[in-house]
């Protein structure tokens, strides 16, 4: 097992897949000559050339729209949207086209398409560049929404996303690129649509994903010092949502805290909590708690921004609330 960063893991997945299949190509803003604004595609342009690493105009609708068309024509495009905040400019093509074409034309259209994008706050980029709107995209049947929290999952899930014949929105987190983790040697995949227990425990179930996995793991370490053992279930994929490990864990601990970076209202936590109540109501020993972003547009000022984002202490407080 090699210990690499999230950035390296994602980059390796892209590189290895492009070496494997010449029909895979990348398109997006600054993916080529620049090397990617988050440096994920650094070196790709020189190695794979301008045909397979395509710099686009700053025009998100046609980036996603052209990727859909090229997928229909038999290629396997990986479109990059510089941040998920810009995905709103391509919203129509993500939800009205990509998510619907296979169904709407009776299964005739096949869209082997990945849209890689970057979400999350914490870098003082202000309200328009710091959002975590993952739940919005997870609302639409026909789309797959993947949001890994470890380098191992990122590499394996990105490979599965590229090999999938469905449109996948692959959401990376802006502050996870330097996060290191063990990654298996060689070619491996992790299937889309499976949650995973990232830390075993007996006292409380923490359900989370992406950046908040890191926050939750830190909270669990501190709680362990007080003798509280939290079990952490990482969703990894928001659609299709795999509730199996969540329900199994909840039936054991009877208590749950859901931690997400996005806003609480109509969020991932709302969905997961509802499903736990629907499937395991009789096992609940306390009302489920949700930890989420404060209901404000994210402010620029560092202190205010950190106040708005979910912190380790918020998770600890919520866990103690359900115990």
């Amino acid at each position: 097992m090699a210990k690499i960063t999230m950035r390296e893991a994602i980059s390796q997945a892209l590189w290895e897949e492009m070496e494997r299949d010449p029909n895979i190509f990348i398109l997006g803003e600054e993916v080529g000559v620049w090397g990617g604004t988050y440096a994920v595609t650094k070196g790709f342009y020189d190695h794979f050339g301008a045909k397979r690493v395509r710099d686009t105009p700053i025009a998100e609708a046609v980036i996603v729209g052209a990727a859909i068309g090229a997928a229909l024509a038999g290629t396997r495009p990986v479109a990059e949207l510089m941040t998920i905040n810009f995905a709103f400019s391509a919203m129509d093509h993500i939800v009205n086209e990509a998510a619907k074409l296979h169904y709407m034309f009776g299964g005739q259209f096949i869209l082997p398409l990945v849209i890689r994008t970057v979400g999350g706050g914490g870098r003082q980029l202000g309200a328009t560049h710091s959002q975590t709107p993952d739940a919005i995209f997870a609302h639409f049947p026909g789309l797959k929404v993947v949001a890994p929290g470890t380098p191992e999952d990122a590499k394996g899930l990105l490979k599965s996303s590229i090999r999938s014949n469905d449109p996948v929105l692959f959401i990376e987190h802006a502050t996870l690129y330097q996060t290191r983790g063990e990654v298996p040697e060689g070619d491996y995949t992790i299937p889309i649509g499976f949650s995973k227990v990232q830390r075993p425990g007996r006292d409380v179930t923490i359900v989370t994903y992406s950046k908040m996995l890191e926050t939750s793991l830190k909270a669990a370490e501190q709680l362990a010092k007080e003798g509280i053992e939290a079990e952490i279930v990482d969703l990894r994929t928001l659609r299709p949502l795999d509730m199996g490990p969540v329900i199994e864990s909840f039936k054991k601990t009877n208590r749950a805290v859901i931690v997400e970076e996005g806003w609480r209202s109509f969020g991932v936590g709302s969905e997961v909590a509802s499903r736990i109540y629907e499937e395991a109501f009789d096992y609940a020993d306390a009302p489920i708690q949700r930890v989420a972003q404060k209901e404000v547009p994210l402010p620029y000022n560092r202190n205010l921004e950190q106040m708005a984002l979910p912190q380790v202490e918020d998770v600890i407080t919520a866990v103690k609330e359900v115990l």
């Binding site: 609708a61 046609v62 729209g65 052209a66 068309g69 997928a71 024509a73 038999g74 290629t75 086209e97």
Partner: peptide, 16 residues
């Protein structure tokens, strides 16, 4: 909305 898709269909043919 189908105009970007058309550009993509043509891109696919050009690529292939």
């Amino acid at each position: 909305a189908h105009l970007p898709l058309a550009a993509g269909l043509a891109l696919g043919d050009q690529y292939l």
